[in-house]
Amino acid sequence: KELVLALYDYQEKSPREVTMKKGDILTLLNSTNKDWWKVEVADRQGFVPAAYVKKL
């Protein structure tokens, strides 16, 4: 499975999103959308801005 690194803190703004902290390592589930990537963090799945994460 592919992992991404959170480059910035992100606070979810809708139930479809997830909160992450800078430095978090997240499991990447889907990166087909260039703006929003689906990730899993702490047993929750949701979207984060693609610009806020980097593939490892």
Rank of each mutant, 00 (worst) to 15 (best):
R16C: 15
D9T: 06
Y8N: 09
Q11L: 14
V48H: 00
V48Y: 01
K55P: 11
T19D: 04
E40K: 10
E12N: 08
P15E: 13
A51S: 14
N30L: 10
A51R: 15
N30F: 06
K22N: 05
A51F: 08
T32P: 04
Q45F: 07
K22S: 07
A51M: 12
L7Y: 04
F47W: 15
F47V: 08
W37D: 01
Q11I: 15
R16Q: 13
N33E: 12
P15A: 14
A50N: 03
T27C: 11
I25S: 03
V41C: 14
L56D: 04
K21H: 11
D35V: 13
W37R: 01
M20I: 14
K13M: 13
Y8D: 08
L56N: 03
A6F: 02
F47H: 05
L3C: 12
K38L: 15
L28C: 09
W36H: 03
I25A: 03
V18S: 02
L5S: 05
D24N: 07
K1S: 10
Y52C: 14
E2G: 10
A50D: 02
V53P: 02
Y10Q: 01
Y8T: 08
Q45G: 07
E40M: 10
W36T: 02
E2M: 13
P49R: 03
V4Q: 01
G23H: 05
L56C: 15
E2C: 14
V41K: 15
E40T: 07
N30A: 10
P49A: 02
T32S: 15
D9N: 08
V48R: 00
G46T: 02
D43E: 13
K38M: 15
A51H: 14
A50Y: 02
E2F: 11
W37V: 07
K38D: 04
L28F: 03
S14M: 08
V48T: 01
W37Y: 08
V18Y: 03
P15N: 11
L7H: 03
V18A: 06
K22Q: 10
S14H: 12
E12Q: 13
R16Y: 13
V41A: 15
L28A: 02
S14C: 11
A42K: 14
V39G: 00
A50R: 13
S14G: 13
T32M: 13
T32K: 12
W36V: 03
T27N: 09
K1P: 13
K34S: 12
A51K: 15
N33P: 05
A51Y: 09
Y52R: 07
A51I: 11
L28G: 01
I25R: 05
K21N: 08
D43C: 13
W37F: 07
L29G: 01
L5D: 01
F47S: 04
V4L: 10
K55W: 08
K34Q: 11
A50L: 02
R44Q: 07
A51V: 09
M20L: 09
P49E: 03
V18D: 00
P49Y: 03
V53H: 01
E12M: 12
